[in-house]
Each structure stands twice: as structure tokens, then as C-alpha cells.
């Protein structure tokens, strides 16, 4: 349905996505994880045709068999909301503050499907019920500032679902929410994806929610997908040094907080920071922070290999 083949995005400062290849089939649930600045959100905006104007795209991006990598705004517009929809990080600011949320959700329905005001209102109430908003008719008449963060995110999910998209991209949908609300929202996304047979791309740095809700996962670092495979395989037996570091840096609630001497244990971290675009190595992006680094890692471009796709010349790939 959606296929990326060696898609790259370059800015004046450097390349922000390198040779990304992905396939998303109907009903797939794919997690994309990585630190801030790894290119996850840029990848998502490419799938909506909403990459920044300053970006140069190369490679191909195919939606329903049509190559969209050079498509202009007018070609993209009919696909948005109807084939690919997206929800964003900040439910606080992602809704027009001057509009009743029901009108915001009704707008694409009326525009794309030509529904009348009453038909659209009826459909909005159904959508609100589908995303578990209590009292749908009353909620629809409220303004965003009258709703809680979790409710706003549900409104945004309803908006994204309005035109029956084949793929829903959720870009860190739960970052701004309380932990238990975040869990409900993630579960709702999985539910909806199963019920509607809708593909889901969940972008997150919360490994737990990705583990809970996706079948496959792609780990990104510095604009590369460094490791990709089944979610369970990758998260339980990470192979790329970066994935291993990312998982090790996760606090384990079961682990003791203090060591034998009674000192507070420090979380293991990956040494160094994500370098800026212009400072990324030409070879492996992780060179300079990697424990397994060989002398030629920084200059030689790694080749993806292994049954589980792995972007590291040092580690032997395994399933």
C-alpha cells in the first residue's frame, strides 16, 4: 500500500534521512523509535507530503502504486485524511482554539464527502463515541479549552479517522499526556486499527507503548533505520549497538535503586549526544558513540543485512 524505497531527505545543513526503505501493508502496525532528532517525525511528514519546503527528497515514495516523491500540494491534498491521516504530539495546540471541536471534525467530512451539516454532525457523534468520548453530542459543542488533554487527543484521533484513512500515523501521541491516559490512548489506537483494518505507524520514544501496540519496529538513529524487525525480537534481543544502548537506558522499575554499598545506581546512558545534521559521520551515523566501533566505521557506509534488517558491519545479523 505504501512503499518507501531508498527515500532520502537532504537539507542545506546535511542529510536528515538516508535511504529509508519500508513497506506498510493494510492493517500493519509499525513502531518507529529513536531519540529526538533521529528523523522519526520528518519521516512521518514525508508520508503526508508535508516535509518542510527547504527539504530535497530523493528515492521513491509510492502510495497505492502511485509515485508521490515529486508530487505537488494539489496531488497530495486528496490523499490526506482519506488515505493517510496523522495525529500530532501536542493535543493542546493542535486544535483550532476558536472552533467548536465538533465543527473541526466535521470540516473534512463536509469538504471531502459533501455531507450536509446534519449528516456531518451525526457522523461526528459516531466518531466521538468510537474514540470513547463520553457524551458525544455535548462534547462536539465544546471548545478545545474546555476539554482535558486526553479528550483533546481523542478529538484529534476522531478527526484523523473521519475520512476512513488506510493508514494512521501517530507522532508521539502520548508524550503530553499523563501515564494512565497515555496507556488508554495507545490501547485505543490499537483497537481502532484492529477493528477498521487500518494500518498504524506509531512514532514514539516510549519503548513500552511500542512494545505493547506494534508488530514490527524500526529503530532510527541520525536519519538511518539502524535495525528493523519483529517488535518482540528487536526489543528482547537487540542487535545493533544503538538499540542495545537505547534499551539499557530504560529505567527498570523492578531493579534495585541502590547497589550493595547503598549508593544510588546511575542509569546506564549512551555516551555523547546526537550530533547536529552537519556533524553526522559519512559512514555509520553512530560512529563516535559506539562501543564496538572499528576504525573504518566513520567513513564506510554500512550496508543493511541479515533477516532482521541490521545496519552495522560489526554485528552478525540474526533473526
Amino acid at each position: 500500500m505504501i512503499e518507501l524505497d531508498t527515500l532520502s531527505v537532504t537539507f542545506a545543513a546535511g542529510s536528515a534521512l538516508r535511504d529509508i526503505s519500508l513497506k506498510i501493508a493494510p492493517g500493519d502496525r509499525l513502531g518507529i523509535v529513536g531519540e529526538s532528532g533521529s528523523g522519526k517525525s520528518l519521516l512521518a511528514s514525508c508520508l503526508m507530503g508535508m516535509a518542510p519546503d527547504a527539504a530535497t527528497l530523493s528515492g521513491t515514495l509510492t502510495i497505492d502504486g502511485v509515485d508521490m516523491s515529486d508530487a505537488d500540494e494539489e496531488t497530495w491534498r486528496p490523499l490526506r485524511a482519506r488515505r493517510v491521516a496523522m495525529i500530532f504530539q501536542e493535543p493542546m495546540s493542535a486544535l483550532n482554539p476558536l472552533r467548536r471541536v465538533g465543527d473541526t471534525v466535521a470540516e473534512p467530512l463536509r469538504l471531502h464527502f459533501g455531507l450536509s451539516r446534519d449528516e456531518a454532525a451525526k457522523r461526528v457523534a459516531e466518531l466521538f463515541a468510537e474514540v470513547d468520548l463520553p457524551n458525544p453530542e455535548r462534547r462536539a459543542r465544546m471548545f478545545p479549552h474546555e476539554l482535558s488533554g486526553g479528550q483533546r487527543q481523542r478529538v484529534l484521533i476522531a478527526l484523523a479517522l473521519a475520512c476512513d484513512p488506510a493508514l494512521l500515523i501517530a507522532d508521539e501521541p502520548t508524550t503530553a499526556l499523563d501515564a494512565n491516559v497515555a496507556l488508554q490512548v495507545t490501547d485505543l489506537l490499537v483497537d481502532l486499527s484492529e477493528k477498521r483494518g487500518m494500518a498504524l505507524v506509531l512514532i514514539s520514544h516510549d519503548l513500552a507503548s511500542v512494545a505493547r501496540s506494534t508488530e514490527r519496529v524500526a529503530v532510527m538513529y541520525g536519519g538511518d533505520i539502524v535495525e528493523r524487525g519483529g517488535t518482540d525480537d528487536v526489543l528482547h534481543a537487540p542487535q545493533h549497538p544503538y538499540t542495545q544502548g537505547l534499551l539499557a537506558a530504560r529505567p527498570d522499575p523492578q531493579a534495585a535503586l541502590r547497589d550493595e554499598q547503598g549508593k544510588r545506581k546511575r542509569l546506564p546512558t549512551i555516551p555523547g549526544n546526537v550530533p547536529p545534521l552537519s556533524g553526522l559521520a559519512q559512514g555509520c551515523r553512530f560512529a563516535g558513540r559506539c562501543a564496538l566501533e572499528r576504525p573504518d566505521c566513520a567513513t564506510a557506509r554500512p550496508v543493511p543485512h541479515g533477516p532482521r534488517m541490521l545496519l552495522c558491519p560489526v554485528v552478525e545479523g540474526a533473526a
Binding site: M48, M50, R77, R82, A85, F88, P108, L159, A162
Partner: peptide
């Protein structure tokens, strides 16, 4: 951005 993503 939300509006644009809704195909407006």
C-alpha cells in the same frame, strides 16, 4: 498543520 493534514 492539523488543518493541512486534514486535506484542506
Amino acid at each position: 498543520r492539523t488543518a493541512r493534514a486534514s486535506g484542506l
